[in-house]
Structures are given as structure tokens and as C-alpha cells.
Design a protein around this nucleic acid. Structure first.
Length: 479
RNA sequence: CGGGGUGUAGCGCAGCCCGGUAGCGCGCACCGUUCGGGUCGGUGAGGUCCCGGGUUCAAAUCCCGGCACCCCGACCA
């Protein structure tokens, strides 16, 4: 039989990624350039991400709403930086119902403008603030170069939009939502992310400040996995979002927006996957446990399936997402198949196990024999629950160690800096100047990722111009 | 948007140079065999050879034009 292994990460990470996405059944190619079909398994993964976020959004007082897909062209043009940032990648509808439209409609690349217009009508008084809205939607950005999940012409996401009375309120909201993203990434996806502020060059078109959670992928490239923006009064001014304060004076609102997209599915794949396939974090895995019955004749089948039904009922009762693989395939095939799909735990059960009242528990995060253990059927639910927790912890630990081993601090030595960013992340003093950033980008393929929020105070020489820098930044090659 | 590549069965490809009945592997269906780490054998279904035009008795193959997708760079969640 032909080898069915994927291209190893070490040979060609990019190729590995593409193969995994299709072979693990996350997505399929679509007839439309730059778009993908998200298949059920991939969508279930997105659903899990989505549910984790939605729960957190609601817990912090946000409400979901839905705004139109089509945005009048004039709206996009109201905020100068915004239009400049987005115009190259807009899809525009000029004909509808067989007639040329009086005003072209933009297929939303993001909804600040149309939501801003609505906010202007909804907000009259300081009593209406803060206004905390979230939308789950699709957006379109006509990217020239696309990759499944990481950058597609159409993608799914959520975009939060809020309005506040003061700059500080808006800033608190922006940072709170960044925390929400980080919490989901770490506790649901087992991806250790670094919270930071984007440089002036890298911030959102029209924002006062942009924040990001940055994650390190298996090839050591950085992936911006979620962003949160303090929009200041830029959009509020452009869209007349005003309120009367306690003194009956007109004030301009402060707004925020924050988004996390199906790109995060790509983050899960690239942060955890290995040469055997996907490795899904237990809390997001659509299937947490797969049970593979093993037998060689009808007697064996009867006795094994009886035990399978019993264990299945117990595990499903406990709320574990379980799948029993009864396909007419050899066990070895099934093992490999589910490993490709990243299922965290596999239960093998055969006649010998039934005789011994045991099962084999195999964990995806530890390959081969090392990850296998015999456990008693009696304590199966607890054993599985504990194991799922252990796997999450271990995956987070592995990813954290990998990340920390590949971030190197450097001070003042530009040559050393260049060596570092060639292969990993550099952490260094950076003045934030556009010219300095440009030089780094031109000399290396790396760009600034963020000024990490958690760093010791102090100052040092900017890695490029040697001028006094008050913050350190992370630099890396990025997706 | 620049550079390269590829369009032939669901997927991966050969055939094209040198025109002559469209093939291989995997997958799929059925039968048997096997089943604790990617079984083996048999039978079978499945094709606008990317599209349009041209040359020719005859085009997957040669010529002209178009389209699509993929990969690599610059730009971006």
C-alpha cells in the first residue's frame, strides 16, 4: 500500500499545513478563487471556538445583533484612514436586479461604518452608554494571496462594536476583550498567546490603538490570532455618534471594535499539529474520544459490542463528546485515521479487554506505546475526564515551552537581531518609529508583532536607530 | 500585482515531444478473506481529456485565443 503519511513539517511546513487541512476533513477547495468550503468537521471546530467566545461575550454584558452584508459606498468613505486601508480589497456590487445601482454597495470587509451609522441613531444620552454589541458574520476582503483558514477572500468571524462615554472606558473595554481572547486561546485552545499593542504601522485602519494576541506556530512564524481596537473618536466623529452628558452638553463617543475569525482554526492546526496529523485541544475537539471496537468473529463482536454500548452510554451521560467507529475497516486504519483528525483520546476495546474488564486508553498528545494505558472499565468516565484535562495541560505546556525556547532577547546588536529573526522571534527595545520599522522589514522578512503588555519598565537603545526606546517589541516572520 | 507551474475518472498522476479505440495508483461498489497499528485476492462502476476556434481523413496530442486554479514573492485578520 502506498504511504499515506503527510509531508513532514520539517520538509515543508506550508505543504504540511495544506495537506492536513484537506485530509483531516476540515475544508475543501471551492470553485471560487480564494474561498474555501468549511466541511462539517472544520465547522464543528469553529463552532466550539465560537461557543467559547460567545459565552464570554455575554458574560461581559455584550448582546448579539446582525447588520447588513451590504454597505453603501459612501459610508466606507466617511473615515479617511479606514477607506485608505480597505479600498484595495473591497468587493463592490454595482448591478442588482438587472439594473445599475445608483450607489454601489460594498460587500462588508468589516462593519465599523454601518454599525457606526446605527449607533449614531441609537445613542442620545449618557444613559445609553456603554453600548455593547457583537455580530457573528461573514466578511469579504479580496486578498491577492490566500491560504485555507489563514487568509481567505471570505471568512467567518465575530466583530464586537461598542460605544463609551470616555476614552478610558473605551480603553478598558478594548483591553477587557483582549483578555477574553487570550482566555479562550489559553484555556480552550491550549495556545499560549502574547498580548500586546500593535505598532503605528501595523494598527487597524482608523484606530487610535490596536491590540493583538500573537501566537507562535509550529514553524515559529507568528500569527495574529485576534485583535482589539480602541477607535478613539475617529468613527464617532465621522458618523456623528454623540451623546448628551449629565450637564446637558453634547459629547462625542469613544468606540471600540474587536474581532476573531476562522483564522483561529488555522492557529489551532499550526500550533498543535504534528507529522501524524491534527492534534486538537480537548475543549475544542468536536470528537473528544473515539472508541474503536476490535474483534475477529461474530462471538467476539457480540461480546465486545455489548461492552461498547455500556461504556458509550456512561461516557455520553457524562457529557463527553464520543464517537464509536463501527466502520468495516481494520483497527490499524482507524487508529491512523483518527490521529489524522486529531481526536485527543482513543479507547480500544477487544475481547481480551472484555475478559479483563479493561480498555486501552491512548492519548493523541503522546505517540505510540508511551501514550497507551490499560484502565478498568469501572472507572472509565473519571479516567477519561482526567485524561482530557491532562492532555489540555500538556498541550499548553508543550506549546509554551516551544514558544519560550524560540523567543530571544537582544539589546542594541542589530546583526544578532537579524540572526534571531531569521529563524525565531526577537524581543528587543524598539522606538516604534516608522522608518526603523521599515528598515527591519526590508532587511529581514520579519515585522514587528507587538509591544507586549507585560514587560518590565525601563528604557534602552532602539535596535535600529539606537535612540532611546521605552518599550520592547517582538519581531518575527508572520502569516 | 509580478514570477513560475498545472488543467485527463472523486483524489494523485502517466499519455502529448513523434496525431490513429483514454490508461495507471488510490478511493468507491459488490464477493470472499482478514481484523490488538494503514490486510489480501477477485469482479465492477465511473471520462464534455478546462473552454473556444483552427490545421488534418483523424486532435488529449499540433497551432491561435481565452479561462481557471495552485505555488513562490510584494500587500493584508
Amino acid at each position: 500500500m502506498a504511504a499515506q503519511a503527510v509531508t513532514p513539517q520539517s520538509v515543508d511546513f506550508s505543504k504540511w499545513y495544506n495537506e492536513i487541512v484537506y485530509r483531516a476533513d476540515l475544508a475543501a477547495q471551492s470553485p471560487v478563487r480564494g474561498c474555501i468550503i468549511i466541511k462539517p468537521y472544520g465547522y464543528e471546530l469553529w463552532d466550539a471556538i465560537k461557543n467559547g467566545l460567545d459565552r464570554r461575550f455575554k458574560a461581559t454584558g455584550h448582546r448579539n445583533a446582525y447588520f447588513p452584508l451590504f454597505i453603501p459606498e459612501s459610508y466606507i468613505k466617511r473615515e479617511a484612514q479606514h477607506v485608505e486601508g480597505f479600498s484595495p480589497e473591497l468587493a463592490v456590487v454595482t448591478i442588482a436586479g438587472g439594473k445599475e445601482l445608483e450607489e454601489p454597495l460594498i460587500v462588508r470587509p468589516t462593519s465599523e461604518t454601518i454599525i457606526g451609522e446605527a449607533f449614531a441613531q441609537w445613542i442620545q444620552s449618557y444613559r445609553d452608554l456603554p453600548l455593547l454589541i457583537n455580530q457573528w458574520s461573514n466578511v469579504v476582503r479580496w486578498e491577492l494571496r490566500t491560504r485555507p483558514f489563514l487568509r481567505t477572500a471570505e471568512f467567518l468571524w465575530q466583530e464586537g462594536h461598542t460605544a463609551h462615554a470616555t476614552h478610558d472606558d473605551a480603553e478598558a473595554e478594548t483591553l477587557q476583550m483582549l483578555d477574553v481572547y487570550a482566555d479562550m486561546a489559553i484555556n480552550d485552545a491550549a495556545i499560549p498567546v502574547i498580548k500586546g499593542r500593535k505598532s503605528e504601522q501595523e494598527k487597524f485602519a482608523g484606530a487610535l490603538r490596536s491590540y493583538t494576541i500573537e501566537a507562535m506556530m509550529g514553524d515559529k512564524k507568528a500569527l495574529q490570532s485576534g485583535t482589539s481596537h480602541n477607535l478613539g473618536q475617529n468613527f464617532a466623529t465621522a458618523f456623528d455618534i454623540k451623546y448628551l452628558d449629565v450637564n446637558n452638553e453634547q459629547q462625542i463617543c469613544w468606540t471600540t471594535s474587536w474581532g476573531l475569525s476562522t483564522r483561529f482554526v488555522g492557529a489551532v492546526v499550526m500550533a498543535h499539529g504534528d507529522d501524524t496529523g491534527l492534534r486538537l485541544p480537548p475543549r475544542l475537539a468536536p470528537i473528544q474520544v473515539v472508541m474503536v471496537p476490535i474483534y475477529r468473529d461474530e462471538d467476539g463482536e457480540r461480546v465486545v459490542m455489548e461492552a461498547v454500548s455500556r461504556l458509550q452510554a456512561a461516557l455520553l451521560d457524562a457529557g463527553i463528546r464520543l464517537h464509536v467507529d463501527t466502520r468495516d475497516e481494520r483497527p490499524g486504519f482507524k487508529f491512523n485515521d483518527w490521529e489524522m483528525r486529531g481526536v485527543p483520546v482513543r479507547i480500544e476495546i477487544g475481547p481480551k479487554d472484555v475478559a479483563n474488564n479493561t480498555v486501552v486508553l491512548a492519548r493523541r498528545d503522546m505517540p505510540g506505546k508511551a501514550g497507551k494505558q490499560f484502565v478498568s472499565q469501572d472507572g472509565i468516565v473519571e479516567a477519561v475526564k482526567t485524561l482530557l484535562g491532562d492532555i489540555h495541560d500538556n498541550m499548553l505546556e508543550q506549546a509554551t515551552q516551544f514558544r519560550d525556547a524560540n523567543i530571544h532577547e537582544v539589546e542594541g546588536d542589530y546583526n544578532r537581531f537579524r540572526e534571531i529573526v531569521a529563524d525565531s522571534w526577537a524581543y528587543t527595545w524598539f522606538c516604534g518609529d516608522a522608518e526603523c520599522e521599515k528598515k527591519i522589514q526590508e532587511d529581514n522578512q520579519a515585522v514587528s508583532r507587538c509591544f507586549p503588555l507585560e514587560q518590565d519598565a525601563g528604557e534602552g537603545p532602539c535596535i535600529v536607530c539606537k535612540g532611546t526606546a521605552k518599550e520592547r517589541a517582538l519581531f518575527a516572520k508572520a502569516y
